[in-house]
Design a binder for these strands. Sequence first.
RNA 1: GCGCCCGUAGCUCAGCAGGAUAGAGCGGCGGUUUCCUAAACCGCAGGUCAGAGGUUCGAAUCCUCUCGGGCGUACCA
Length: 591
Amino acid sequence: MNIKKEIDVRLSEKLAKLTNLSDAPALVNPTSNPKFGDYQANGVMSAAKHLKTNPQKLAEELIATVDLSDLVEKVEVAGPGFINITLKKDFLQDRIAENLHDERLGVPLAPQPERIVIDYSSPNLAKEMHVGHLRSTIIGDALVRLLDFLGHNIIRQNHVGDWGTQFGMLVAYLDKLQKDLPPEQTDSKNPNASRNSLFIEDLEEYYRQAKQLFDTDENFANLARECVVKLQSDKADVLKRWKLFRDISWEHCKKVYEKLGTLLTEQDIRGESAYNDDLPEVIKALEEKGLLTESQGAKCIFLDEFKDKDGNALPVIVQKSDGGYLYATTDLAAIRYRVQELKADRILYVTDSRQSLHFQQVFAVARKAGFVPEGVRLEHIAFGMMLGPDGKPFKTREGGTVKLMDLLDEAEHRAYNLVSEKSPHLPEDEKRKIAHVVGIGAVKYADLSQNRTSDYVFSFDKMLSLEGNTAPYMQYAYARIRSIFRKNKSDKNNEQITDRITIEHPAERTLVLKLLQFAEAVESATSDYFPHLLCNYLYDLAGAFTTFYESCPVLKSSEPIRSSRLQLCQLTARTIRTGLGLLGIETVEQM
RNA sequence: GCGCCCGUAGCUCAGCAGGAUAGAGCGGCGGUUUCCUAAACCGCAGGUCAGAGGUUCGAAUCCUCUCGGGCGUACCA
């Protein structure tokens, strides 16, 4: 049960009736200060302002009309028209007892499940994954888990870059290599001979060299462009190489995803190449709608809502003057597929904020062209850049791109050193397991715990710190609780844990209330796609637990308090594990 | 030039459908351990919420302008 929502709905309904305002939200939130109770409603004041009446009087009227007796111990009007609400102890105890046997820990399912397509990760298959793919992958994966938990039907889409100039370049470069080699070496050195002889590292290097050639050698650039054309016309030998590149690259991605623990699989891939045949169709459809204009040889859609410096409409180019298609064209084709074939109710794009103009334009064109029905939502879940400690874009010391695999390896390595230092007694394989969970968790949590819209400063030291709002802190909080149960099990006078939770101590009450607010945290993190709100909640929960644990002896208490407190420990552990799980972060039993 | 985002403690960040005394963590200083994991906890110091106007009973939050930073802005993705 979402307590906040429950109170809000009841108050808002009555407030609307009382004021005859169509929109009179009660604006219920947890109180800013515990002395005001558990929840406060702030909406009366603005409603009173609209009606030009006395807010305190209106607040008094409202609480006289609304029935909250099943939840509430005390409701009072305070200050200029706040309504302060204190929940009943019985209510808290009853609700928390329900969560004891609830897999979902009180989080309600979405009343209307939707089919939600989430486009995320989307690496370029011509080269290794690098830090630029990290945020999309982490944030996208967390949103998948969160929305799925609410009962939505999630369709992951990995819109990989597996087509176009970049692949033309690679194929052309391989051709060139082959020609340059002496004939007798062709079989052993020719990467095309066997896939085993070509690795992602080679591919990375080829891409670099091919790119350089492409930029400097006009002849080569033309060859590369020809290869793109050949790709599009299904020339068998060219296609064979393309598949080879793609397969090698995917093997590499798979390893990264595996290490990262993302949900993406081969089934989720639907890359740019998948839309190749649709691109002329998209142009045709736009043409038929009368949206296309030819300008400087390119086919464009001019949209009035986007203006250039002189106030002229800005174009969205969908076909180049040389006949080639662009990013926007592919995205339009993808939208059609997602609407028509996947039957999406909502399509989310998890990409960096630099692409926000692009998506605004693509969304606008898709609407105008009738590719997207009225009720279908298109949303760009934008995020900021990853910065290095110097506040500049995150690069290696030499100024190169940081490979994602290297970064993850280092996180694990650092976590391993930490574990070895703090818990040398643990067996080696255990230490490795913990290092993996903590290292990867740290990278993910550091990203997710920050408001995604802003840039964030990447720091191994900070994310692996045991202090503050970090993964290791949360994982440690979990492990500490689990240790209580190991201890309890090994106790001689191990007693049966009963089901009742009773609130005796203020710290218990605070913890219970916090536990009950898990539903609110999940809801808030999901509604606007802000996973950091769930992180904030978990951190607060850990704090509430610590206070409880410091002031309320658990194993040393006598029944029935002992059972009650053990249950609180159990629920806290489950809530932390579930919450981290929704973010794609694992826990360990000891660390 | 135009557009979008941002500027909160020394540092990294919360808070922003307007609400009560602006919160954390790190760093600094000072404490706590015969006690269920000290990888912990508690306390103190630290702020003209970039600046100036405006709207309001009330502004970090909304509006306008200024300064500072980032990103984007016709054939890359």
